[in-house]
């Protein structure tokens, strides 16, 4: 605690100017409070009701920090944290109304969306979607309005047939994510999945395909 106190004073004298550090201060204020409260609860089971709202956030914050070693917010925040644990006594003696600090913007907090969050965590596709499997958008007249941005991109992209790999590249998502999104789009009737001639399953068709590719290459 004494260490924390000393960092606090050092911080307060040097760093409290500038809009960015103000924001960081505000951010640190809440998280510091929440952490304090969680720590307090371990010691004293009877706590006020506000703790319940603070709890999920305080659990979320540390878990996301290791994923972003380069994020500038977190290292700074650690310093602030220590400083605000220093203020702990003051806060607990006379609870300041925690000013509604605007939650950090999505970009600031996470930096990116984890890929499979787009698919709701699902990893399985309902269709055999190879890298080269072609997808084309169905007749737009009978389509419901797609409610997911990715589906709109897929529909736009596949007006001329596009491969799974191309769709993944356009969406800038990993292949597995693209497969689930395409599968969903096909289930909803937005797109058609063309049949892929897989080598082992239909050897004769595979040979015919090779013949066609060969003559096609020669014509190039």
């Amino acid at each position: 605690m004494t260490v924390a106190m000393s960092t606090d004073s050092g911080f307060g004298s040097g760093n409290d100017e500038g809009a960015i550090s103000d924001v960081l201060n505000g951010f640190a204020l809440t998280s510091g409070l929440r952490r304090r409260k969680r720590g307090k609860r371990r010691d004293e089971p009877d706590d006020d009701g506000r703790d319940a709202t603070g709890e999920p956030d305080s659990r979320e914050a540390p878990s996301s920090s290791p994923a972003e070693p380069t994020d500038v917010v977190w290292p700074g925040e650690e310093d602030h944290d220590r400083s605000w644990t220093g203020e702990e006594q003051f806060v607990s003696a006379e609870p300041i109304p925690v000013e509604p600090v605007a939650p950090p913007s999505a970009a600031e907090e996470t930096g990116f969306v984890r890929p499979y969050a787009i698919t709701g965590g699902r990893t399985k596709a309902n269709y055999p979607l190879e890298l080269e499997t072609l997808i084309s958008t169905r007749d737009a007249a009978v389509l419901p309005v797609p409610d997911q941005l990715e589906h709109q991109v897929i529909m736009e992209e596949c007006r001329t047939p596009r491969s799974v790999a191309e769709i993944a590249a356009v969406l800038q998502v990993p292949l597995g994510v693209a497969r689930v999104l395409i599968s969903d789009a096909a289930d909803t009737g937005l797109v058609t999945v063309h049949r892929t001639v897989a080598g082992s399953e239909n050897a004769e068709a595979h040979f015919m395909l090779m013949e066609r590719v060969l003559s096609g290459l020669r014509r190039l």
Binding site: E130, E132, L134, H194, V197, L209, R212, V213
Partner: peptide, 8 residues
């Protein structure tokens, strides 16, 4: 509906 084929 046109059937498209792809190879790799």
């Amino acid at each position: 509906p046109q059937t498209m084929t792809s190879a790799k």
